[in-house]
Design a protein around this nucleic acid. Structure first.
Lengths: 218, 218
DNA sequence: TCACGATGTATCGACTCGATACGTCGTGAC
DNA sequence: GTCACGACGTATCGAGTCGATACATCGTGA
């Protein structure tokens, strides 16, 4: 769900719509690509509910009418797209919004591992505590294996009625889901190992840097 | 696109809505699952445009008011769900519909290999001629590699700003798409081999059964 | 100078889903 | 027997989303 993604991004830094969309689509990569027709109504709704607020920074070229040169160091670095453009609408989390985000990120019900939500929840795992991460991953895994079972069963009942291309499509779809399950297995193992590592560190009092992956060199 | 899928299914046999949806979701397997809220309006639109027509067969338990026993051999076989229920609305292709379907199945433009259409087009490859099949597969492949390139590029520009979970999500997404490309490569090779086989058979005058896959035993 | 592309906000129509409503029919529990 | 439950069957509604589009500013380069 878009709203969670917006809140999650704004939790790191205030952003305006255009930049928000770019980061959103970078965040979710090849999975989804929210459009403005989705983004702007969502922002409006969030403002109306008091979860985010607008801060009209970067005033629209004040006083000096149509004169060309911009006043701030706009293209000075040449990298940051956050240069002084024109009346952009920058959104920021309110206290209510922060609270709501924490509630959502701490939840691990079915809503968290359904198709339309899982990737967003996963994208913000860095802001989610370890037990919730594992619960969501396991819920997702169960969900996928259930679907796998259902498809296999209904396919077995009607196998001979389908032409080869339909069969190939089904076979490919099943394979994709199976691969997803194996991916989840790897992630769950990693999370469990980390939890053990943290427990051990807690006993022995060592570093708390959980950033390295145990399968990185494989 | 749902409409193409409906026309394609009705091209094999007349069906009513409920059965149509079941076959639709079996056909597309784990990819999509059209709901009634999509199906019935689409049927209505197709009827309005004269591409399909309703045939009110299987009359609604005529005359014999509320008496229990059904008159036809309803559960006699126990397998066919097409037994004599109650006033079902059976849809059938019209001549216009058949023609439209042929036009659509023969087309191989960008619309055929975009995300939302490709799987439906693929599901009806058995009703599509070989050159169109290859063009669609190659178009799809090009589309995916373009997207791969775009995601890789934008990821390279912002790699260090992302946390490990976001990176893992991106990596997984890229891997899925890469696998899709390799799948397409295999299909394209198979199609090309078949085309050669057909050409050879045409010269030597042998069988025209194109059903076996050349990678089945791999 | 002026066309073009990037930046930026915003809306509209079309499509789709999930939930829901309503109704028939067969089956099995009690 | 009867009654609840699940399969079958048609249909609509609200909400979320996309793609196209509109409009405006600004920088760049032909």
């Amino acid at each position: 769900m878009l709203e969670t993604a917006i809140l999650g991004l704004l939790n790191s830094a205030p952003l305006h719509g255009y930049e928000l969309r770019k980061r959103l689509n970078l965040l979710l990569g090849s999975f989804r690509a929210f459009s403005y027709g989705t983004l702007y109504p969502a922002l409006k709704s969030l403002v109306a509910r008091g979860l985010i607020e607008t801060t009209e920074r970067e005033a629209p070229a004040p006083a000096g009418r149509a004169s060309g040169s911009r006043q701030s160091g706009a293209k000075a670095n040449g990298k940051a797209p956050l240069s002084g453009r024109r009346g952009r609408i920058v959104y920021r989390l309110t206290a209510d919004g922060k609270e709501h985000l924490q509630t959502v990120l701490a939840s691990s019900g079915p809503a968290a591992w359904e198709d339309e939500n899982f990737d967003v929840r996963f994208a913000f795992f860095a802001q989610t505590d370890a037990e919730t991460r594992i619960r969501i991953l396991e819920g997702r895994r169960t969900r996928l294996t259930e679907r796998l079972e259902a498809v296999r069963e209904s396919a077995a009942r009607t196998r001979e009625r389908l032409d080869e291309y339909t069969l190939e499509l089904q076979r490919h779809g099943l394979e994709q889901v199976e691969r997803e399950v194996r991916w989840l297995d790897g992630l769950i193992t990693t999370e469990r190992d980390r939890a053990l590592g943290r427990a051990r560190d807690h006993n022995a009092g060592a570093s708390d840097a959980p950033a390295q992956r145990n399968k990185e060199r494989g």
